[in-house]
């Protein structure tokens, strides 16, 4: 939370100081609401991550929202075809700022083995991606690690990739 104990004023440590930004980021990082965009086998691993065995709720990200307007973390898990890309772009645009994007698996990150006419070779050509997960498909631990990396990024005060692009 970025806590610093204040100067010794004789209050026995009952006063602590911080900044508004740090408090807000602390709140944001522990209440990420993911928007799942599952189009392939990565989505199966994502479901496993959310289910009881791996339990993403241990990290404060279990409030899956199927409306982009209620979420702030987009998880792109699976192949994105050129017909699907406008849909993904629209969903990203509808999410309120600040928003983060995880590109899960080889297909979303670079097209994977599908080097064909119909498949987007990496969604980062069209939407800003904060964290990439390698793997085909990645294991649930990898997705949890990616969420933790997003949390670290938020805690450090760094801007999401989408905001950096505007700035």
């Amino acid at each position: 939370m970025g806590l610093d104990f204040g100067p010794d004023t004789g209050t026995d440590g009952n006063i602590i100081t911080t900044t508004i930004d740090k408090v807000v980021n602390w709140g944001r990082k522990n209440s990420l609401w993911p928007m799942p965009f599952g189009t392939a086998c990565c989505a199966i691993e994502m479901m496993a991550t959310l289910a009881s065995k791996f339990d993403l709720s241990r990290f404060g990200s279990e409030a899956i929202r199927f409306s982009p307007r209620q979420s702030d973390l987009l998880i792109v898990s699976g192949r994105i075809s050129i017909k699907m890309m406008p849909v993904l772009k629209r969903i990203y645009d509808q999410m309120p700022d600040p928003k983060w994007v995880i590109s899960m698996g080889a297909c979303a990150s670079c097209g994977g083995v599908f080097d064909t006419y119909t498949l987007i070779q990496g969604v980062d050509q069209f939407i800003p991606v904060d964290v990439y997960i390698p793997g085909c498909p990645p294991r649930p631990e990898d997705l949890i690690d990616a969420v933790l990396q997003v949390q670290q990024k938020i805690a450090s005060g760094a801007s999401p990739k989408g905001v950096e692009a505007i700035l």
């Binding site: 050129i82 890309m85 406008p86 772009k89 080097d115 064909t116 006419y117 119909t118 498949l119 987007i120 070779q121 050509q125 069209f126």
Partner: peptide, 15 residues
């Protein structure tokens, strides 16, 4: 005769 990797439609995409 259609190229497997397409004719560039997957890169230049007009939203």
């Amino acid at each position: 005769d259609y190229p497997l990797q397409g004719r560039g439609e997957r890169e230049r995409f007009n939203f």
